[in-house]
C-alpha cells in the first residue's frame, strides 16, 4: 500500500528520526511517572500534567533549536497538542477543541505551506542569528525572573464553578457579543490583508502586459 503513496525519502527519514527522538525522550519520563503514580507519590492528574509539560517543553525547545525548518514546524505541532492537553486538564474542553482545530488543523498547515512556497525545498537548514548567545542569556534571565515572581505571589484559594460546555455558546454570544463582533471584523480585515499581500504582484503585472499589447 505504501508504494501507492510515494513519500519522498527525506520525509520518511523525518518520521523515523522524529519517532526515535520522541521515544527516547518520552519513554523514560512516562516510565518514571508511572512508577511515581503506582507508588502513590503523585495523583493521576499530576501525572498527566507532567506528561503534557514534558511534551510542551520538549516540543518548544525543538521548534526553537532545530536547524531544519520542517523539523521545527513538526515539533511545534507537538507543543500545541500538549497545550491542548493542559486545557483539558484545566477542565476547559471547548478551548482544547478549538486549540486542536485552529492550531493543529489551520495554523501549522499554513506554516508548512509558507515553508513550501519559500526556498525551503532548496535550503531547509537556516542558520541562527549572530546574537544567539545574548538571546539565550536574556531569555534565561527573563524566564527565571517570571518564575520567581509567580512563586513569590500569593494566589489565594481556588474558587471556581465552571461554565458547562452546554451553556458556553449562550454565554459568549450574550455577554461578549461586542468583542465577538470586533474579533469577527479583525479576522475579516486580516483575511483581506493577507489576500491583498499575496496577490499584488500578479495584479500589478497584468495591466502592464495589456499596455504593451496595445
Amino acid at each position: 500500500m505504501f508504494d501507492r503513496l510515494p513519500l519522498p525519502s527525506q520525509f520518511d527519514r523525518t518520521i523515523v528520526a522524529g519517532g526515535t527522538v520522541v521515544a527516547l525522550v518520552a519513554l523514560p519520563v512516562v516510565l518514571v511517572l508511572l512508577a511515581l503514580l503506582f507508588a502513590d507519590q503523585i495523583s493521576a492528574a499530576e501525572m498527566v500534567f507532567f506528561l503534557a509539560a514534558t511534551v510542551i517543553l520538549a516540543g518548544a525547545l525543538g521548534s526553537v533549536l532545530l536547524p531544519n525548518v520542517v523539523h521545527a514546524a513538526l515539533s511545534l505541532v507537538a507543543t500545541l497538542l500538549g497545550v491542548a492537553g493542559i486545557y483539558l486538564l484545566l477542565l476547559t474542553e471547548f478551548i482544547a477543541l478549538v486549540q486542536v482545530l485552529v492550531y493543529g488543523g489551520g495554523v501549522v498547515i499554513l506554516l508548512l505551506f509558507a515553508l513550501m512556497l519559500t526556498n525551503v525545498a532548496d535550503d531547509p537548514v537556516v542558520s541562527d542569528g549572530s546574537q544567539k548567545p545574548f538571546a539565550m542569556i536574556v531569555a534565561a534571565i527573563m524566564g527565571s525572573l517570571f518564575i520567581a515572581v509567580m512563586l513569590d505571589a500569593q494566589w489565594g484559594n481556588p474558587a471556581a464553578t465552571l461554565v458547562p460546555f452546554s451553556e458556553f455558546g449562550a454565554r459568549i454570544f450574550r455577554d461578549f457579543s461586542i468583542p465577538v463582533i470586533v474579533v469577527a471584523i479583525l479576522l475579516d480585515i486580516a483575511l483581506t490583508g493577507a489576500f491583498v499581500n499575496a496577490r499584488t504582484a500578479e495584479e500589478a503585472s497584468e495591466p502592464r502586459t495589456e499596455e504593451a499589447a496595445a
Binding site: 521548534s63 526553537v64 509558507a114 537556516v126
Partner: peptide, 30 residues
C-alpha cells in the same frame, strides 16, 4: 504558571535568535 513562564521564555528566545521569518512566527505562536 511555571510551565507558561518557561514556554514564554523559550518562545522569546526563538524570536530573538532565529533568522527565518517563518521560524520567528512559530516562536510567536509559542
Amino acid at each position: 504558571l511555571i510551565l507558561s513562564a518557561l514556554l514564554f521564555a523559550i518562545g522569546f528566545y526563538g524570536v530573538m535568535a532565529r533568522r527565518s521569518a517563518i521560524l520567528i512566527l512559530m516562536s510567536v505562536e509559542l
